[in-house]
């Protein structure tokens, strides 16, 4: 039965769902302020489904050039290339379902599923599907609510986006505890930080990813030795 998997997926996704509903509301409210109602937010959540891309798209909806929209989306979304590459092995056996899993692979779903968080007894395929679906649904639900609620929110939500940073930090700490080799974790943090300082905040992601992949490739022997090279 997959009931157990749905339950486990819901439990694991809960922190993400809560932040997605709140952040999605923030997006819906922002869209509303620019004159785009709930339906726009929901459609964008289905067509783009990337919080960061959607947030930067708001200011381009009226009057941005199509070319700049494409380049900006590429800059912001390029990290998905990185995520998809690393999920190919895991999603290999998923059949047609894999197209949904890749289409809806966002930062948070990736954080959860790439750390192989499912319980040992679970059917991985069902678990992955439900984690992905719960996360996407809650983002879209949040933006729907935000679009409907408009500006009638009873609290100031400034700083709410820190929830994403906090979530990634928790995953980082857990991975640090689990990993035998700390080279990859240090590389991710240090290379990206240096690139942010050198290339500026608009352009640092792509050079950071290229340098990280190159460094991982060069240091493969050492990292695999530290990891023991067994369980993939």
């Amino acid at each position: 039965m997959i009931k157990g998997e749905i339950k486990a997926a819901f439990k694991a996704s809960l922190p993400i769902m809560v932040t997605f509903i709140v952040l999605g509301m923030g997006y819906g409210i922002l869209m509303n302020e620019h004159g785009y109602g709930a339906l726009w937010s929901v459609a964008s959540g289905i067509i783009i489904f990337s919080g960061t891309v959607q947030f930067v798209s708001v200011s381009m909806l009226s009057g941005g050039s199509f070319f700049m929209a494409a380049v900006t989306a590429l800059m912001v979304a390029a990290r998905h290339i990185f995520f998809s590459i690393s999920m190919i092995g895991r999603y290999r056996e998923e059949g047609k379902k894999k197209w949904y899993l890749f289409y809806a692979l966002c930062d948070e779903t990736y954080a959860l599923l790439s750390s192989d968080s499912e319980p040992a007894w679970a059917n991985k395929s069902a678990y992955r599907f439900w984690v992905t679906a719960f996360n996407q649904t809650s983002w879209i639900l949040g933006s729907l609510l935000g679009g409907l609620a408009g500006r009638f929110l009873p609290f100031d939500s400034e700083g709410i986006d820190f929830a994403m940073t906090a979530l990634f930090t928790c995953v980082f700490v857990q991975q640090w505890i689990d990993a035998k080799s700390h080279i990859p974790a240090i590389l991710g943090l240090v290379v990206t930080l240096i690139c942010r300082l050198v290339f500026g905040k608009e352009f640092f992601l792509i050079p950071a990813m290229i340098i990280i992949i190159a460094a991982l490739t060069i240091m493969r022997g050492k990292i695999e030795k530290q990891e023991g090279g067994d369980n993939v």
Binding site: F172, Q175, P184, G188
Partner: peptide, 9 residues
């Protein structure tokens, strides 16, 4: 290994 670098990124 990429997941371990991606969180820092």
């Amino acid at each position: 290994v990429v997941p371990y670098t991606a969180m820092g990124l």
